[in-house]
């Protein structure tokens, strides 16, 4: 990354995007870089991070602007960026324990498909598999979304009153 940014051959000056991804089996961090010398963006994928303890080195020492992007990825996926000086939650409240964009964070009801029902919020603790004793059905490949009510069965007693 340092070479890509500093070397005159590349000059990737701008971090166009930094995204966290949960593929269901592993975590990714996807970077898109822009250079005035290149006609297209450069996509770098840090793949194969473990879901239990995803860690990647921070790029904030090159692009200071990555700080908030990394905070967002941490907040939403629990990816820890080593070297980021300000890695705290950015959207969710500080006492929140879940990582909402992970695939095992299930919405009990699909808001978009049945708007009348609304979303009943179920807060799941980090690493729910161990705590709940059952592996939630993750959406992987051609699997459809989890059926309505699946989360209640998986997490008895975890539901907050609506």
């Amino acid at each position: 990354m340092r070479t890509l940014h500093d070397d005159e051959q590349f000059e990737f000056e701008l971090l166009a995007d930094l995204a966290g991804v949960d593929t269901g089996s592993e975590m990714w961090v996807v970077y898109h870089l822009w250079s005035p010398r290149s006609p297209d963006w450069l996509r770098i994928i840090a793949a194969g991070l473990s879901r239990d303890d995803p860690r990647v080195p921070s790029v904030t020492f090159i692009w200071k602007g990555a700080e908030w992007a990394e905070r967002e990825a941490y907040d939403m996926f629990g990816i820890v960026f080593e070297g980021n000086r300000d890695l705290r939650r950015i959207y969710m409240p500080p006492d929140y324990t879940s990582f909402p964009l992970r695939k095992d964070f299930l919405l009990p009801d699909d808001a978009a498909r049945s708007p009348g029902e609304g979303v009943r919020h179920v807060e799941q603790a980090f690493a729910p598999a161990e705590q709940l004793g059952a592996r939630p059905v993750l959406r992987q490949g051609k699997l459809g979304p989890p059926a309505a009510g699946a989360a209640e069965q998986l997490a008895p007693g975890k539901e907050k009153p609506a």
Binding site: L101, F105, L107, A111, R113
Partner: peptide
């Protein structure tokens, strides 16, 4: 982003 993942 989460809502988008759960709708079409």
């Amino acid at each position: 982003e989460k809502i988008c993942e759960n709708g079409d």
